[in-house]
């Protein structure tokens, strides 16, 4: 990831700013539905605004997570393991985005 410092720095701040309102929405919305029964929780996520905000929170959050974890890896891992962990970090974040998008899509359009 040489020569990527400036774009990572900007994207970390950009995603951070977006995550402030999304994070507050998430804290209020999801914690209040954690213990809800299945139908009630599903009906909540099926509302278009909630589905969009959930997808945005997870996708932008995953992007922010990837930058932060890459920073942690760069700070502590100096062996050949670093490359493996960087790729793993990418895959975890991509899987998170794909899984959340698929779940929100299913809940929104499958009723």
């Amino acid at each position: 990831m040489a020569h990527k410092g400036t774009s990572s720095f900007i994207m970390q701040r950009f995603t951070a700013a977006l995550l402030i309102p999304l994070g507050l929405w998430f804290l209020v919305g999801v914690v209040s539905h954690l213990g809800a029964d299945y139908d009630a929780a599903r009906a909540w996520l099926a509302k278009p605004l909630n589905g969009i905000l959930m997808a945005l929170f997870i996708a932008i959050g995953a992007w922010h997570m990837r930058i932060g974890m890459a920073e942690i890896i760069a700070d502590y891992i100096h062996s050949g393991l670093k490359g493996v962990l960087d790729i793993l970090n990418w895959l975890v974040c991509l899987a998170l985005i794909a899984g959340a998008a698929f779940a929100v899509y299913t809940v929104t359009f499958a009723g």
């Binding site: 999801v30 996520l45 997870i58 997570m65 974890m69 942690i72 975890v92 809940v107």
Partner: peptide
């Protein structure tokens, strides 16, 4: 930040169970 990295995977599990598995959600 590291805790949230792990926690987001649990959040994904919650959303996925909501979409695909009522028994897992329960």
């Amino acid at each position: 930040g590291a805790v949230l990295y792990g926690g987001s995977l649990l959040l994904a599990l919650w959303v996925l169970s909501l979409a695909f598995s009522p028994s897992l959600f329960a």
